[in-house]
Write a protein that binds this DNA or RNA. Structure first.
Lengths: 229, 229
DNA sequence: CGGCGGCTTGATCGGTCTCAAGTACGGTGG
DNA sequence: CCACCGTACTTGAGACCGATCAAGCCGCCG
């Protein structure tokens, strides 16, 4: 059972005060959604959207990282996903958000008007398919996450490290933008168990810790075996 | 840690041997997908599709119940969802199934050719939107399930009973098509813990057990409080 | 009536949580 | 440049919840 994130009194970013990037190709209706985005800045722990709010926008990480989560009434928090640069998030079929999202550190997020995207997808089957595939990928990720949540603590931590390594630029070293508490709430563990387990992995020479937020994978095969896929 | 489902040597149903229901309106291209289904029968524990197989069909429960699940290499099984009459399942954006599905008891399943559905959705924006919303509902369900998996045993069982009650025809009595083992694998618990917890709920007069597969909700308010929403 | 599978119940074990200190680090102000 | 502080992280001891191991019970079908 984990504590809720400490409230940092995040001032809600004003969507109207957004700096508008120049439109590169305002008339092309088909293809990607990329052309319609506006960049917004969020600071550390600032809420991007909250559960139950109208889902008027669709988001893409340009810089920084985002946590998407749900909370139980007593404050226990389950982080459903971390979004890194290039990832899209916040897409809902219903018209309200089913989860909340916050910037983990300072972040730049591209924002797309949902109504515009939906209108486009109604006309363009390729856009519609893209939306659907995005949602389906999220579904697969969620199903994999369920599998993770029935594993042992060691298996969860190893799985997490392998996943982050796969998403990083392929270097030997994984850099973690999120705190131990975030990792714990992602894995359904406590912060102490996460810390201890990382310690064990270090002792077993599976990883090394140049700093607490940077993890070098010393023995991927060992780690991989520990994930219990 | 739960055991895998005992192998019952399920003979794979032959898609070609399906009894064809008459087409009610063969030329109407738009609207629901309902018109293109073929009914198939599956017997208890028979596999409908397996993880990694090509996703050539889309399914809808007509009679009976279905479990959708993934397994870890050592046999631990996580049931991601139960599908009851009226539920659609098996829709994938990729062209292979990411999970497996089995009939829980004898079941009748309507089967739709994926290629036909996709072709239809490429022409008809309403069908495309229906596909997308179906996937999005599954995603929401999966995210709720993640939240469930961080709850205590009692909270999980109470949540499960409330969910099943909500899906049943609204009667006082919930009838469970699945075994305790299935429930355990759905909730991320062992069969013993599920059984014990149901026992506790009975002792607390929250529920009554006319039989092990039928559960009467005696005190919904108490149960609801125990779900920790 | 016998046997089998599914379910319940009991006793014990172990992994993770909880509570509580202690340590490293980064930022801030002198 | 250093002292200080707050936050994040680590580490330890003990409790507790759910898993495991092991019987027993029930209902169903032959």
């Amino acid at each position: 059972m984990s504590m809720p994130t400490p409230a940092i009194a995040p001032r809600r970013a004003d969507i109207a005060s957004v700096r508008q990037p120049r439109m590169t190709n305002a008339h092309a209706p088909a293809g990607t959604l990329e052309m319609m985005g506006a960049a917004m800045s969020f600071s550390r722990n600032e809420e991007i959207y909250g559960e139950g709010e109208p889902a008027d926008y669709l988001y893409k990480v340009a810089r920084g990282a985002v946590r998407m989560y749900k909370v139980l009434s007593d404050g226990r928090r389950q982080i459903g996903a971390f979004y890194l640069p290039g990832d899209m998030f916040g897409l809902e079929a219903g018209d309200t958000h089913a989860s909340s999202a916050e910037a983990i550190g300072d972040a730049t997020i591209l924002v797309f008007k949902r109504s515009a995207v939906l209108a486009l997808s109604a006309r363009d089957a390729d856009v519609a398919r893209e939306l659907w595939e995005m949602t389906a990928r999220e579904l697969q990720r969620a199903q994999d996450h369920m599998l993770l949540l029935i594993k042992s603590a060691q298996e969860r931590v190893a799985s997490f490290l392998m996943e982050m390594a796969g998403r990083g630029c392929g270097n030997e070293e994984v850099s973690l933008p999120m705190s131990r508490q975030d990792i714990a709430d992602f894995l359904g563990l406590t912060i102490e168990t996460v810390s201890r387990t990382i310690g064990h992995l270090e002792h077993a020479n599976a990883i090394a810790l140049p700093s607490s937020r940077r993890i070098a994978l010393r023995n991927r095969a060992m780690l991989s075996r520990m994930t219990a896929s």
